[in-house]
Amino acid sequence: MRQLNCKIIENKKVAQRFYKMRIEAPYIARKAQAGQFVEVKCSCGTDPLLRRPLGVHRVLKNEIELLYKAVGRGTELLSKKEKGQALDVIGPLGDGFTLPGPPVSGPMPIILIAGGIGAAPLVALAESLAFSAKRIAYRKKQKTYVLIGAKTKSHILCESEFKKIGCEVKVSTEDGSKGKKCLATELLEDLLNIIRYPLNAAIYACGPVGMLKVVAKIAEWRKLPCQVSLEERMACGVGVCLGCPVKMKGNKYKMVCKDGPVFDAKEIAW
């Protein structure tokens, strides 16, 4: 990890309240793994005082992209930053997704499930899966499905990005304005019932904790490996303040920033 002053290359609105920012950060671009995050200083002064954690959305050559939703003071300020300005960033931080190993036999369906802004880090994962498929023989036969759940049509994020990477994308909305009218977790059940080799599936999820909980249950029920990316309020982002706990089975806390943000769903005390 490093603390860097990065130049903002682009900061644009991609949907209502959603923004995409591209910053120059060769070090982070070289080091970042899908699922890792950065801590961004949103204000120049002391309000808000703390940095804000944002997942690495895409890794480019010398640059990284962040996809974020303006939900409060910090992210509002971030959305007003202009290209050419400097951004104080610490990263890459945390433990990212672990790519699946070889299946015992047959092809391996990989399922990415995103709720709302949870699509952001899963794009990085889809890209690194696609990249590894070019080099690792057993991955050539794998197929990546992406399930995106959103409140309404305009909140569906990254659909075209995932398609461009070569994933099969299915969408659901709570109001039925696009795709099936249901939660993303229902798409997951549907998919597991129709795909071939469902027992070989590996699941990766990022989204609201309610969704992750259901995904974890489905995975446990079907005995499928499942990794989830969690969120918690953070201060240091590196594991020193013990400010971002998640309760694990056995009445122990782990830190989302250092031990996560990606965890094996089985280990968490949902």
Binding site: L49, E232, R233, A235, C241, L242, G243, C244, P245, V246
Partner: peptide
């Protein structure tokens, strides 16, 4: 074991 989350939050010019 420590307290349940959330454990940190920022406030104007503080936390």
């Amino acid at each position: 074991v420590g307290n349940p989350p959330p454990r940190v939050v920022d406030t104007p010019s503080g936390m």
